[in-house]
Design a protein around this nucleic acid. Structure first.
Length: 421
RNA sequence: GGAGACGUGUCAGAGUGGUCUAACGUACCUCUUUGCUAAAGAGGCAGGGUGUUAAAGCCCUCGGAGGUUCGAAUCCUCUCGUCUCCGCCA
């Protein structure tokens, strides 16, 4: 959500953002609804002012004046109610349109329609070279008893899986390593409720646009796809002190995604599943562009060095305007090398929003001058499981079908060097 | 799942239909005075909207949303939350 005053004063900027982000919205419609809103609001307020004024006189009025004033107010009330109803309708339309106004993307972000237009800005590590024909993660992990897709489908359905044996041990190793890693970065670990109310999703920007992808329960609560939602919701409608900022959170939670619209994509394996686990970095900081940039770089750096320490080749893409989503100013994705597919697959996404989310969620702080401001918000994947296993096992597979465990994880695997030996 | 109580500003707490501009206290900020393990006095102290060069003014907010009424913190309905008791349960 942007400030309506800003929208009013900068319609051209908004038009440009709408075009860049391929949003279906006519900003002139919003501006004309806003005008109607202000006119009606001013009328309703002046009627209320008169009502208040006369109401104050009624108690002390003489008996006949009193009857007169009351009948006058009865008429005014009818008029007021009519205008209030109209205002309510205008407000509903206004609010709906406001939810579709995109945030202004960074001028440096590449312009494009889909992920095909994303731009590779950095590459780390050499693509793994094998002196044998590499297998895909499905075959490797199934043979080693790390995953069971057939029974997963039997029990869950499409995209179901069981992680088993060393598949589970490897996940716990990654989780424990991630905990140790981010503990040194000043993040507070949090296990949040992943079943949340609608408000938090709306505030983060997952509703209305992404609603179809979210699991909904029969009590109208939602099982959300990332701990970003409850972590941001944690501070909604609060006023923080600048001394509390930045708030650096490391969420750990299951994640649920319906994956509607992706039925034909990645139908096999652990790349795209309905439920997974994820460590997520979320930051609330002071509301300046410089602070946002600083933490955006920091979050990105954290995840990159985590991946580097595992030793998996990756590249970083600068997401284009059409791929980044309504609320984001800029987004960098980290994509890991997947040898069998001979391609890079997304593992992390680092975004900053300025006050787009915090305005919706009403997260404010008092700055050093005591002035009330919206905080800025950022988030970035720390590490998702089991998706990370796809690249990990494929890059570290050996000719004999075993998997070499990355050095940093060995101490979390009882000192073992290989899976399968 | 059943029964009940409660929700007011930083905190505490009064207010049960108009007379009040949500009282009194407290925390916090500024000033004055005394002069030092501090006290007393004066003033200030919510957020949002609208408006304006800026302001004043006006409107809204007593958990939230509706409703009754000329008029609602107060009455009604729904809802969210907290607490107590009973039941069930890892």
């Amino acid at each position: 959500m942007l400030d309506i005053k800003f929208i009013r004063e900068n319609p051209e900027l908004i038009k440009e953002a709408i075009e860049k982000k391929c949003v279906d919205l006519n900003i002139d419609d919003l501006i004309s609804v806003d005008q109607k809103r202000l006119e009606k609001l001013s009328l309703v307020e002046s009627l209320r002012a008169e009502q208040n004024l006369v109401s104050d006189k009624i108690p002390s009025a003489s008996v006949e004046d009193r009857a007169d004033l009351i009948s006058k107010m009865t008429l005014l009330k009818e008029d007021l109610k009519k205008h209030e109803d109209e205002l309510r309708e205008i407000m509903a339309e206004w609010q709906k349109l406001m939810l579709y106004v995109p945030n202004i993307p960074d001028p440096a972000a590449p312009i494009g329609k889909s992920d095909a237009d994303n731009v590779v800005i950095d590459t780390w590590g050499e693509k793994t070279v094998f002196d044998f024909e590499p297998k895909d993660h499905i075959e490797i992990m199934t043979k080693l008893g790390m995953v069971d897709f057939e029974r997963g489908t039997k029990v869950h359905g499409f995209r179901g899986y069981f992680l088993t044996g060393d598949g589970v041990r490897l996940c716990f190793a990654i989780w424990n390593y991630a905990m140790d890693f981010w503990n040194t970065k000043g993040f507070n670990p949090i296990i949040p409720p992943i079943n949340t109310r609608r408000e938090a999703l709306l505030g983060c920007g997952f509703i209305p646009q992404g609603e179809a992808d979210i699991y909904k329960a029969q009590d109208d609560s939602y099982f959300v796809g990332t701990s970003e939602v409850p972590l941001m919701g944690m501070y909604m409608n609060e006023v923080l002190d600048h001394s509390q900022l930045p708030i650096k959170m490391l969420g750990f939670s299951p994640c649920f995604r319906l994956e509607v619209g992706s039925h034909t994509k990645d139908v096999k394996g652990l790349i795209r599943v309905h439920e997974f686990y994820k460590f997520e970095q979320v930051v609330l900081c002071e509301g300046t562009h410089d602070e946002s940039l600083k933490f955006h770089a920091e979050l990105q750096e954290n995840t990159e060095s985590f991946i580097q320490s595992l030793g998996i080749p990756y590249h970083v893409v600068d997401a284009c305007t059409g791929d980044m989503g309504l609320g984001k100013v800029r987004m960098y994705d980290i994509e890991l090398w997947v040898p069998k597919e001979e391609t890079y697959r997304e593992i992390s996404s680092a975004s900053y929003f300025h006050d787009f989310q915090t305005r919706r969620l009403n997260i404010r702080y008092k700055d050093v001058d005591g002035k009330m401001r919206f905080t800025h918000s950022l988030n970035c994947t720390a590490i998702p499981t089991p998706r990370i296993l796809v690249s990990l096992v494929e890059n570290f597979q050996q000719a004999d079908g075993t998997i070499k465990i990355p050095d940093v994880l060995q101490k979390y695997m009882n000192g073992r060097e290989y899976i399968g030996k």
